[in-house]
Design a protein around this nucleic acid. Sequence first.
DNA 1: GAGCACTGC
Length: 650
Amino acid sequence: MPHDPDPPPAKKFKPGSVFFRSDYNKPGMLLPRKGNATTPIDIQRKQLPIYQAKPQLLNQLRQLHNAILIGETGSGKTTQIPQYLYESGIGRQGIIAITQPRRVAAISLAGRVAEEKRTQLGKLVGYTVRFEDVTSWETKLKFVTDGMLLREAIGDPLLLRYTVVILDEAHERTVHTDVLFGVVKTAQRRRRELNKIPLKVIVMSATMDVDLFSEYFNKSPVLYLEGRQHPIQIYYTKQPQSDYLQAALVSVFQIHQEAPPSHDILVFMTGQEEIEALARTCRDIAKHLPDGCGPMVVIPLYASLPPAQQLRVFQPAPKGSRKVILSTNIAETSVTISGIKYVIDTGMVKAKRFNPDSGLEVLAVQQVSKAQAWQRAGRAGREDSGSCYRLYTEQEFDNFIPMTVPEIQRCNLAGVMLQLMALGIPDVMNFDFMSKPSPEAIRSAVEHLELLGAVEKKEGQVLLTALGKKMASFPLEPRYARTILLSTDFSCSEEILSIVSLLSVNSVLYSPPARREEVLAARKKFTSSEGDHMTLLNIYRAFKKVSGNKDWCRENFINSRNMVLVKEVQAQLKEICLKLNLKLESCGANTGNIRRCLAHGMFAKPAYVVFNELLQTSHCYMRDLCLVDADWLLDAAPEYFGRKLHPVKR
DNA sequence: GAGCACTGC
């Protein structure tokens, strides 16, 4: 069956990685249709594919309590459906919420819809994300991150302010979306039982595999919307590739030698190190290309890159040059780059898993799912038709798992379980998850919460303690929340608030490997013999002393963006502490108190150090260590350490 | 002496 009707752009560079063609036959595709920036906004709205379906769509949505909506990128579903509902009076008694997994999406979508409604953002149309609430009493269409709506549900489990909740990007299956599924389903049922205004739930997905959604929401009907995705030609390798990096390199230069220079290439890879290595190799080879082959601009893209360098992916390459972007899966959803004509998919991704027995997190390279491979391919067809070169055979693709395992089945559930309890869910052990986590993962999470004193078991029931209730009010991992709550006992709440803020954002340290010596020299100034936490605290204090000066950050290899985030988190945590009447005080030079407090909050592993993270990559790592005394640990959790340190012989 | 995908409250 496989044949080779249309060989790849070139095979001059190195034979052996020839692709053959397969038809891109995902449903719901339209031929290219160009948008027009000068078209008035209400005409633009009517040109969207969804506009044709508006009457039937509203008819259906008016009657249904639940609906699943499949719409591809460009269908206009996210911006139009909330407006259609509002304009036709559906859900007028309350607010229509549209959830998004990402902050930027919530913010920009709200901006777009406000513009279409010709109103000021924050009036009829608004958004709520962490640290930012642009809504008012007038707001009827509210874009919100799923995590934010979940937090809101702790104060109002029936979501009574809302008449419609639209869960967008549901196919991504973030932990927050998954928990929300259960929360809205419960709220719907309870509101019916209590004779309150009904809650309409619309689940929106960009992929076809929605049986689970439909099944979960009482076999609710599935509605289809045409998108504006352009055709994408898929190519597979004829033979399995033993070295996907080598295969990627060959493919980049094959395309480079044949395709017009204005056609940019996006390569999906797994991480910073291999991206930087391949970038160097590409640049070296590009210097020695035959005549007639244009120059190449190679741009790495991954999340830990400083913002200024991330922005380079949006700059067009100089005329006659080709842009080649080497990216992690950040370009799958979070960063959208225009002008991509070719996608090269290595078929690999780095993903985190959690082992509930050992408490060990594993970050490892693995194969992508089919859904993820389609998502990657789709990045080539955003403005025009494109091509996707898969560095694996069609048989290999057939053996990929259909969908990425939902995050809720891969992560530490301690925070999720605590949140469910705070929501007043009666039987958390048997919560109605759409995709159930393993019983071990649930049990391990509840045990962890028990050790932290957040829950207690009574007559087979798991109950939230007063401490647990306070812990749930912090937007933090439970152990961090507990550490803060304990800090008043050690008179060091000021310091602990700073340290927990530092630990709860991505690293504030920026360490370009090429400048290793300089980095070490700069860091030395802040290093504390008492451990990483104290070092971080030193850095934070120095940062505040210079009022967050950006030059200072650059000179000291500090990531200023993350540092600003630390400040915002710290302010938020402080506010919560004040609401809980927690005394804020500093321990001054008595740093032993800080470490003692850390030991009490984060004791969950071997004695003598407490750590921030236990992670397995090529080796097993403990990150962010802090020296503690063994008897502090025994003092913190006598039962736990009595068992772990002196195992009973049988 | 080597290292860490991506979000979010």
